[in-house]
C-alpha cells in the first residue's frame, strides 16, 4: 500500500510540475492576442475545409492488432514471474499460447492488414 501511495503522489506531482511551470510562464509572458495572430497556423496558409477529417480504417486495424497482442502479452507476465518454478510442461503451454497468436499475426500479414496504404 505504501508503494502505491508513493506512486500516486509521484504521478500527481509529475502532472502538477509542468502545470505549475506553465502557469508561472503564463504570469510572466505578455498577453496581446489579436484576431490575425489567433488564427490557426495550419500549414502556413489559410485553413481549407473542416479540420477534423475522417480517417482511414488502417489506423483502427493497427490498434486492434495491438490490442490483441497486448492482452496476450499481459497473460504471459504472471507466467514469466512463475517461470523459474514451472515444469517443462508449463513452459510448453505458454509456447503453444504464443504459437496460436503467431498464426494470427501470419493471417493479418497474408491478408495485407499490416500494409500501410
Amino acid at each position: 500500500m505504501e508503494d502505491w501511495l508513493y506512486i500516486g503522489l509521484f504521478v500527481f506531482i509529475s502532472i502538477a510540475l509542468p502545470a505549475v511551470a506553465i502557469f508561472l510562464a503564463g504570469l510572466l509572458s505578455p498577453k496581446k492576442p489579436n484576431p490575425i495572430k489567433n488564427t490557426s497556423y495550419e500549414c502556413g496558409i489559410e485553413t481549407v475545409g473542416p479540420s477534423w477529417v475522417q480517417f482511414k480504417a488502417q489506423y483502427y486495424v493497427y490498434a486492434l492488432v495491438f490490442l490483441v497482442f497486448d492482452v496476450e502479452t499481459i497473460f504471459l507476465y504472471p507466467w514469466a514471474v512463475a517461470y523459474n518454478q514451472l515444469t517443462l510442461f508449463g513452459v510448453l503451454e505458454a509456447v503453444l499460447f504464443i504459437l496460436i497468436l503467431l498464426s494470427g499475426l501470419l493471417y493479418a500479414w497474408k491478408k495485407g492488414a499490416l500494409e500501410w496504404m
Binding site: F75, Y77, P78, W79, A80, V81, A82, Y83, Q85, L86, F89, G90, V91, E93, A94
Partner: peptide
C-alpha cells in the same frame, strides 16, 4: 502473482 502464473499453466 507467482501463484497466479503457476495456476495459469
Amino acid at each position: 502473482i507467482v501463484t497466479f502464473g503457476k495456476d495459469l499453466v
